[in-house]
Write a protein that binds this DNA or RNA. Structure first.
Lengths: 172, 172
DNA sequence: GCAAATTAATGATTTATTCAAG
DNA sequence: CTTGAATAAATCATTAATTTGC
C-alpha cells in the first residue's frame, strides 16, 4: 500500500483536491522535523520541495504548511494525549541545540518557554543551503547596525520587482 | 509637512528597514479598505502593488500585511475605544455589502459575528481584476465543487513552479 | 532650536483556531 | 478521525511622533 499514492491529480481532469503526501515525502519531512527543523526558510522550503518533487507532485506551500501543522500538532498532542498518562515521559528532549538563526534574537519567550527553538547542524538528507549562510542572513537581525553592512547581508529585500511576486515565506 | 515622506531609503546606501508607506499609498489603501476590501487575493494584491509602486517603493507583502493589520486593528479599536470623541466621525458605516466571494461560505462565525464580510462592487480607483471574475475564483469557497473547476480557480497558490517562488501569503 | 530619551503607531512574524477533504 | 489548508488573534520590533533637557 505504498506505490500508487500519487498520480491521482493532474492527469487530465485537472483534479486537484489537496496535496496528498507520498510515503517517501512524509518520511523525509519527518526526518527533517526530527532532526530539529521547525520553521524552514524560503530557500529551505524551495530546496525541500524541489527534492521531494521527485517522489510526486508537491508545492512549496505544502511543505510550508506541513511544518506548520506538524509543529503545532506536536505540541497540541502532547498536551491533550487522549488517555491520561500523557506528557509524562513522552517528551523526547531536543537533539541538537545549536545556533538559532531563524528566530528573532532569542525571543523574550512568550508561551512560557517550554521548548526552546532548536536548529539542525548538519542534515545529510540532501545539501540544503549550507546552514552557515543562515548566520549571515539572520532574517533581518539588528538592522540598527546597518552602518557598514553590505547589501548582501540583507535578507533578500532585493526583490527588484513585485511583478514576479517575490513574497516571502518567513512567517512563523 | 507632507511632501517629503518618501525618498528616504533606496537612494544609494541600501537603507531599507521596514516599508514606510507614502501618504498617497496610504490614501489609496485606505480608500480600498473603506470601499470594503478586506482580504485581497493575490492578483488584487499584485495589481494594487503595481499601481502603488508609482508612488514609491513597495512590495506585495506590504500590501498584504497592510490589509491584515488594518483589518485586525479596526476591530480592536472598536472594542476598546480609547478616549471619547476620538474616532467620532472616523467610523463610517460599511458602504456596500454585496456578495462575499472571498470568505469561505459564510463562516460559522468565530469572534461572535459583529460585522459580516463585505465586498466591493466597483472600485474605480483603477481597473483591478474586474470583480466579476471573483465570483468564479471564490477563493476556495466551495472547494468540494472542484469537479470541473479549472486550476485557475485555486486560491492563488496555483504555483506552476516553485522555482520562481510563487509562494503565497495567505496565512493569517 | 536641536538632539537624545520616551512613547505611540504600525509594519512584520508567530501562534492558535477553524474549516473541510480524505 | 486525521490532517492539509486558511484565517484570525497575539506578539514582536522598528519607525515616526512627542517630550525633555540643554
Amino acid at each position: 500500500m505504498e506505490g500508487d499514492q500519487e498520480a491521482v491529480m493532474v492527469s487530465g481532469g485537472v483534479k486537484c483536491g489537496r496535496w496528498n503526501p507520498t510515503a517517501e515525502q512524509v518520511k523525509v519531512l519527518m526526518d527533517l522535523f526530527k532532526a530539529g527543523l521547525r520553521t524552514p526558510s524560503t530557500e529551505e522550503i524551495q530546496s525541500i520541495t524541489s527534492h521531494l518533487s521527485s517522489y510526486g507532485k508537491i508545492e512549496s506551500k505544502n511543505v510550508f504548511y506541513w511544518f506548520q501543522n506538524h509543529k503545532a500538532r506536536e505540541r497540541h498532542h502532547k498536551k491533550r494525549r487522549r488517555g491520561a498518562a500523557a506528557a509524562a515521559a513522552t517528551t523526547p528532549p531536543p537533539p541538537v541545540v545549536l545556533t538559532a538563526p531563524n528566530k528573532r534574537e532569542a525571543k523574550n519567550c512568550l508561551g512560557g518557554g517550554e521548548e526552546q527553538e532548536r536548529k539542525i547542524e548538519t542534515l545529510e538528507l540532501f545539501p540544503l543551503k549550507s546552514y552557515d549562510l543562515e548566520v549571515e542572513k539572520t532574517r533581518m537581525g539588528r538592522s540598527h547596525e546597518f552602518k557598514e553592512m553590505k547589501p548582501s547581508a540583507l535578507p533578500f529585500f532585493d526583490a527588484g520587482m513585485d511583478l514576479l511576486l517575490d513574497l516571502r515565506l518567513s512567517f512563523l
